[in-house]
Write a protein that binds this DNA or RNA. Structure first.
Lengths: 144, 144
DNA sequence: CTACGAATTCAAGTCGACTTGAGGTCAAGC
DNA sequence: GCTTGACCTCAAGTCGACTTGAATTCGTAG
């Protein structure tokens, strides 16, 4: 019961088995051994998966996440790179907060065209100098 | 010169012309007329593109963004759906903030294995009940 | 000892969001 | 009036991140 097989990891982490195999293939996680054919994962993989989930949420590619957190729970990036990442996330937090405010504004102020409402424009202006997002991303269907 | 042609929109918004054509094709933005072959965009498209950038940052699909902001700068979603979205973004903000803290922690506390450091685990625990992110996403290469 | 079900491999497919390329059009400047 | 270069269309390609499917191998319960 120290070791988990893929089904259990999948269930506990909320990640599909195929995804776990894929993550192992690209070196994001590692199984410690095999029981017959079956991969056996150490329990720390659950923590690693949480970290991976966090990283994904912040918009990092799996590559970058791998570089940040390393395969073995060791962290490879130099301090200043990490702090840089943290800064970038802070910026993102500010922008997202502005977006949430913007949405609430839209819900409240039912002016015909928000594009002309001054407080709306102010929110937009606050949201970043130009139109380029802090990070370029691609997205999965998000069901509704 | 009220109207902008695609190159100008592209430059001012930091969005490739091919992307603008694509957005028009899927109905996210609209050109007001043509000058010969060339699309002519009204200036409000710049604001719309900013909104789109924000939406992308928050992890919404282009579909959802279209539903939220509508093609014409009119906002189609009912209030409560918007407030829901705002809530979701707030949650995301909290999680991202936790991630930034986590990264800073990693930079500071150079313990050999963070997976065992209690304050590290605490941060992770704060970051969400299970391993499933608030939104499933896919990502583009993010250059470094 | 056999059948079952959970796991395996590997190649191919999918999806969103674009980008690229070939080949064509057009308006403004010389 | 011809060239130039920014724009056009449309089909196909790309990329990251997975998922799916077919064919196979196990270990455990009956």
């Amino acid at each position: 019961m120290r070791l988990l097989d893929i089904g259990e990891v999948s269930e506990r982490a909320g990640v599909a088995p195929s995804t776990l195999r894929y993550y192992e293939e690209i070196g994001l996680i590692a199984s410690v051994t095999r029981h017959g054919l079956r991969r056996q994962f150490g329990p720390e993989v659950l923590l690693q998966l949480k970290l991976i989930a966090l990283g994904k949420m912040a918009g990092f590619s799996l590559d970058t996440i791998g570089a940040m957190f390393g395969t073995g729970g060791g962290f490879d990036l130099p301090r200043d790179r990490l702090l840089e990442k943290a800064e970038a996330i802070d910026q993102q937090v500010r922008e997202l907060a502005a977006l949430a405010e913007t949405l609430r504004h839209i819900a409240r102020c039912k002016a015909p065209s928000h594009l002309e409402c001054p407080s709306f424009r102010k929110l937009l202006a606050a949201a970043g100098r130009d139109g380029t997002p802090a990070k370029a991303r691609r997205f999965k269907a998000e069901p509704a």
